[in-house]
């Protein structure tokens, strides 16, 4: 289903969800939950957005039913730990590649994905200062390395 323009800010979280449907359904579920909450704040009133969000809610309810045996889904506190560990794992992979001077597209994507996953953590409450800093650094690094590679420069 096409994403209405008003909901464009959630497109990257939805894409991350899709990429994790098979790899890690818990990550996929919470990315969609974050997209749902943000989408409702952005525009839950116009017919095209409501239609999209109702479909997204259907999908979330179905996922929760299918994953009901998984404690990371049935208990949000466990889910919080799962998403935080995963976000840090992706961030640390990107950071280690960056520090080793291995600049490649997957490194940019890993930094960017980790920043999206730190966004997702906000469904569980306010982000810690450490996670806010990680998110800011990951977003900046992704943009910086992307620009360097685009301009044929070596990132510092």
């Amino acid at each position: 289903m096409a994403l209405p323009p008003q909901l464009k800010p959630i497109q990257h979280h939805l894409r991350t969800a899709q990429e994790h449907d098979k790899r890690d359904p818990v990550v996929a579920y919470y990315c969609r939950l974050h997209a749902m909450q943000t989408g409702m704040k952005l525009d839950g009133k116009t017919p095209e957005c409501r239609k999209f969000l109702v479909k997204l809610m259907d999908q979330l309810e179905m996922m929760k039913k299918e994953l009901s045996d998984n404690e990371s889904i049935s208990q949000e506190i466990v889910g919080n730990a799962h998403i935080e560990n995963y976000a840090l794992k992706v961030f640390l992979y990107a950071d280690s590649e960056d520090r080793s001077g291995n600049f490649h597209k997957n490194l940019i994507k890993s930094f960017y994905t980790s920043s999206l996953l730190f966004d997702v953590l906000s469904v569980f409450g306010e982000l810690s200062e450490e996670n806010i800093q990680h998110r800011k650094y990951a977003k900046w690094k992704a943009a910086y390395i992307h620009n360097c590679l685009k301009n044929g420069e070596t990132p510092q």
Partner: peptide, 27 residues
């Protein structure tokens, strides 16, 4: 009809909010 449309939209928004709360075991 404008206010009817707005009421319908609000009711549907409430329904989504309720489903979200239920999904998160907040009801």
């Amino acid at each position: 009809t404008g206010s009817v449309g707005t009421s319908v939209a609000s009711a549907e928004q409430d329904e989504l909010s309720q489903r979200l709360a239920k999904l998160r075991d907040q009801v």
